[in-house]
């Protein structure tokens, strides 16, 4: 531990990684609370993989076709927003095909990403980076991007906290009270999409899904109100990303994978603690 603190003083990249973990935790804690309570982790996973397709396409267009202005981030935002709108529309039209659309988006996004990265010379190795991210490669510009994301999320949630809560808890009732529930739900999906895009840049597809669901579920058993759940899960995520980074540094392991397994461990322990509490 001491070793990690010393290294933190020496290396700017570790400080950046630590800060990135904390900033990502704010976004994933707040948005993840909605994802978990509304039970749409499947949608979050689907959007995360759709993003992969967008990034692959953008990288291919940029490298092979010389669209120099197009960055992977553009592709990611495009795919995430498109995915959110498609799922929102599938939902609004009703029927039982919503989860088919979600799974299809998941698979197609991943396939498109793999295909275009394969077609792009020199990018084959990048797939792992996008899946698991590389938090130790974060630069100051990415940190600023994360800060902006956190600001946007907190602003939207401050303005729409009550209708979002009502739509997540009892959508039919909210609609009867004149809330435009389809619009509010699509807003929620866009928030999820935005969060995923930014976090993928920092921590990778798989860690995004872990951060959005595991810490939130772990603290969910101990939260009485939605905002408490947001605060607690953001705090727990920060602890997890920090601990994951320290452990990975000490043992020379990939930070993303270590953090995910730590989060899963805490989730299981919280479940056991809750079960013991019920029995007592």
């Amino acid at each position: 531990m001491i070793e990690f603190l010393e290294a933190l003083g020496r290396h700017a990249f570790l400080r950046h990684a630590l800060l990135a973990g904390a900033l990502a935790s704010v976004a994933s804690g707040v948005v993840g609370t909605y994802v978990v309570t509304r039970r749409i982790t499947g949608i979050a996973g689907s959007l995360a993989h759709a993003v992969l397709g967008g990034m692959g396409l953008a990288i291919w267009l940029r490298t092979v076709h010389g669209w120099a202005w197009l960055t992977p981030l553009h592709g990611a935002v495009f795919a995430a927003v498109l995915g959110a709108v498609i799922i929102g529309a599938a939902r609004a039209r009703g029927g039982d095909r919503e989860d088919t659309v979600i799974s299809a988006l998941w698979a197609v996004g991943m396939a498109v990403g793999v295909l275009f990265l394969f077609l792009t010379p020199g990018y084959k190795a990048d797939l792992m980076t996008y899946l698991f991210g590389n938090i130790v490669m974060v630069d100051p510009e990415t940190l600023r991007l994360l800060l902006v994301l956190d600001g946007v999320i907190l602003l939207v949630v401050a303005l729409f906290y009550d209708p979002l809560l009502a739509v997540c808890y009892d959508e039919e009732f909210a609609r009867l009270r004149g809330v435009r529930t389809d619009a509010v739900f699509t807003l929620l999906l866009l928030l999820v999409a935005l969060t995923i895009v930014t976090l993928i840049y920092v921590v990778g597809v798989v860690l995004v899904i872990a951060l959005i669901s595991l810490p939130v579920s772990a603290v969910g058993r101990f939260s009485r109100r939605l905002w408490q759940m947001m605060l607690l899960s953001a705090a727990l995520s920060s602890v997890l990303t920090t601990a994951g980074l320290a452990l990975a540094y000490a043992a020379d392991l990939p930070a993303g994978a270590v953090t995910i397994l730590l989060a899963a461990l805490v989730y299981v322990l919280a479940g056991v603690a809750a079960a013991l509490k019920r029995r007592a």
Binding site: D162, L165, V179, Q228
Partner: peptide, 21 residues
């Protein structure tokens, strides 16, 4: 039965939803 029993809301949170609109 249509409401999620594990959703983190208080009685006041639920009641005040009637004020939407």
């Amino acid at each position: 039965v249509e409401l999620d029993p594990r959703f983190p809301v208080t009685v006041m949170d639920v009641t005040i939803m009637g004020r939407l609109g």
